[in-house]
Computed example of a mutant assay.
Amino acid sequence: MPDHIKLILFHAFIGFLLSLAFVGGLLYLNIANLWHLVTHTAEGPIALIMLVVFCTITFGSAQIGFRIMMMVEENDDDESKGGKRDAIPVLDAIAIPIPVKADDRRA
């Protein structure tokens, strides 16, 4: 399996574990009375599965994005500091009054 696929799957799994911990904390602390809703309604298991899946998508995406942004490339060319900007011409704004007809009516 290619290295980048392994990287994505590994960090997606970490996001899944984070989501399980988050949902477990939500249920344990009974935030918004979720424990009662999940255990005492017929749709509770479906809601629990959906909560885990959507939290997995959220935390997995954040974990993958964090890992990719933390990757560092080694550059052999230490002299290059990036491109140079061209001088951008600054336009001087001149305020010109424009007469506007207005009725003197008040509502």
Rank of each mutant, 00 (worst) to 15 (best):
F54E: 11
F13K: 07
I98F: 08
I94V: 13
P97W: 09
D92Q: 11
I57D: 05
H4V: 13
A102V: 07
H40N: 14
F59A: 11
L29T: 13
D3L: 10
L27I: 11
A62R: 10
K6E: 08
D103C: 03
G44N: 03
I46Y: 13
Q63W: 00
L7P: 00
F22M: 09
S80Q: 11
W35G: 00
M70A: 07
I31C: 02
L29G: 09
D86H: 15
P89R: 10
Y28N: 08
V52I: 14
I8F: 07
F10D: 08
L26E: 03
I98K: 13
M69L: 08
W35D: 05
Y28I: 08
V90L: 10
A93T: 12
L7M: 12
M1Y: 10
D86K: 14
M69N: 09
F16Q: 00
E73C: 13
L18W: 02
K81R: 07
F66Q: 04
G15W: 00
A42R: 15
F16W: 07
A93P: 03
D3F: 09
L26T: 02
F22K: 05
M70F: 03
A93K: 13
M71E: 09
T56P: 01
I64M: 04
D103R: 04
D104K: 07
E74N: 14
C55Q: 06
L34Q: 06
V23P: 03
A47W: 06
H36G: 03
A42D: 15
F59K: 04
H11P: 01
T41C: 07
D78I: 15
V23E: 07
A62S: 12
G82L: 03
A21P: 00
Q63H: 00
I57S: 09
L48G: 01
L34G: 00
S80G: 05
F10S: 12
C55D: 03
L27D: 03
A93V: 12
G24A: 10
G44P: 02
F59I: 04
I49F: 13
L91D: 13
L37I: 11
P89W: 06
D103F: 06
F10R: 11
A62V: 13
I49M: 11
V38G: 01
L17I: 09
A12L: 10
I49Q: 07
N75M: 14
L29H: 09
Y28L: 13
E73G: 15
G60C: 02
A12I: 01
K81N: 06
I68L: 15
R67K: 06
F10P: 00
H40G: 08
G44Q: 01
A32S: 08
V52A: 14
P97V: 11
D86I: 14
L20W: 03
R85A: 13
M71K: 06
R105F: 09
M70K: 05
L7D: 07
M71C: 03
G25Q: 04
I31P: 01
L17T: 05
L37T: 09
M69E: 04
V53H: 11
I88G: 06
A95H: 04
A95I: 10
A107R: 04
R105I: 06
I49T: 12
I94S: 10
I94L: 13
D78W: 13
D104Q: 04
V23I: 13
